[in-house]
Structures are given as C-alpha cells and as structure tokens.
C-alpha cells in the first residue's frame, strides 16, 4: 500500500490511498473548517466550508471528499477561501433564528465556534427571521428547527450507524426541513429507537436533550469513533 505524498500549505505530508485531504491535513495539525463532515459518517460535501484550492484544478474541491493524489499541492487557507467561508457562515446565521444568548448550546456550538475562528463579528445579509417549529414531542429529546443548518449529520448517523433511518430531509430549497418518520411528530415515530446518537452528532442546539438550560448542552461525539471502530475492527478503544 504505497502512501501518497503531497504538499498542504507548504508542508510535505503523506496519506494512505483514498484518504481525504481533510483527514491528512487534520492528522498533521491543519484543521480545515467543516460543518457537515464528521469522522465515521459518509461525506456529502454539502456545507462547502471545507473547500480547498488544488493546483491544476480550476474549481475548488471539497477536501472531505477529495482523495489525496501523489504530488498534489493544496492550499487550505487562502484569503479567497476565508472570504467565502465567512460569507457562508453569515448566510447560515441569517437563514434561520440563531440567537446564541438563549440557546442551550451557547458556548458549545460548532457554528458559534466557527464564526469566532473566522472572525465573523456581524452579518452583512438581512436576517430572514423565518417561523420555524420546535418539536418537543419526544420524551427525552427536542428538535428546534430554528437552530438547524441542514448539515444532515443526524440523517446519516441514524441511517448508517443506528440503522433506523428515522430522519430524512423533506421539502426543498430554503423550505427544506429535517423530518421524522412520516413527517410527523418525533414522539409518535415508529422508526426511532431513542438512541440519541443524532443529538450527540448535531453541531448546533437544534437537537438537544430535554432538561438542559441555556448554555448547559454538552455533546460528546467520541462515541461515534468508538462504535464505528467496534463494528468494523472489533476493537473497543476507550
């Protein structure tokens, strides 16, 4: 298994064939911004935050889904990329109602962290202020569509890791919503096994455990690697 050697941001690195630019960069201390990517879930390349410049390619490529190739030259943090990422985060903040001050995930939200790291201190587009539902019908968990960014991690973890496929995405465009079962209340779902994996992988305060108040929500995503390694390699690594 010949490794691939390539250059990322001026540093020479090696990666296994088929490994993504994102993973190789991450393992070498370069954390490319991302929102829909999560180790252990198949990638969809939807949020476009992890786009990188690759020499010889006219278009920006999603680093989460682009396998490394021998002799690749990658730039992950050019001014143009930063500008794009900032505007993408602003579009997200304006798309629904992200009021950090009163959110359960305040202080532990990947979108909030990303806005800080990208230096987003205000949003240049108009806030849409849509009217979104909050589904509290499940005994242990809640889903607040105001805070959902449609990254589809919940859909993928429920389909691939738990296997219940309770979640999917309904409707289209800016009206797209995460739906449970028949597009019905989460509490009435026959598919849901109440395992809570979707709550743990959700990057924002959209999926939350009931009882957590403002700023109290803490999510632990390490379970995902633990389970995926257990299933694939029969190793239970604490």
């Amino acid at each position: 298994m010949r490794v691939r050697t390539l250059e990322i941001d001026g540093q020479m690195m090696t990666g296994a064939p088929g490994e993504s630019i994102f993973n190789v960069a991450w393992n070498n201390g370069i954390h490319i911004p991302r929102m829909c990517h999560l180790g252990g879930l198949t990638d969809v390349g939807a949020c476009r935050l992890c786009l990188v410049e690759v020499e010889g390619q006219s278009r920006l490529l999603p680093s989460c889904m682009t396998p490394v190739r021998e002799g690749m030259v990658v730039r992950t943090n050019t001014p143009a990329l930063q500008k794009h990422r900032k505007l993408i985060v602003e579009l997200l903040l304006a798309e629904r109602n992200h009021v950090c001050a009163v959110c359960v995930a305040n202080g532990a939200c990947e979108l909030q962290d990303l806005a800080t790291s990208l230096g987003v201190d205000h949003v240049r587009v108009r806030y849409r202020h849509p009217q979104c539902e909050v589904d509290l019908s499940h005994p242990r968990f809640g889903l607040d569509h105001n805070r959902c960014i449609l990254c589809s991690r919940c859909v993928r973890v429920c389909d691939e890791v738990e296997g219940a496929h309770n979640w999917d995405i309904g409707h289209r465009g800016t009206n797209a919503r995460v739906i449970s079962d028949f597009g019905t209340a989460w509490g009435d779902s026959e598919s849901c096994t109440s395992c809570g994996k979707c709550v743990q992988v959700c990057p924002t305060g959209a999926l939350f455990s009931k009882g957590a108040s403002v700023g109290e929500m803490r999510k632990d995503r390490s379970f995902l690697k633990y389970i995926v390694t257990a299933r694939e390699k029969h190793q239970w690594i604490r």
Partner: peptide
Amino acid sequence: IAFGDCAITGNITAIRNSV
C-alpha cells in the same frame, strides 16, 4: 461601535420578527 449582540444581530429583541 455596535455594542453587544442586540446592536449587531437584533438578538433577543428581534425574536419578535418571525411573527
């Protein structure tokens, strides 16, 4: 200087906007 989330994002005061 836009001082605080309300001045910058509308924050709590703007929650009414979706209605």
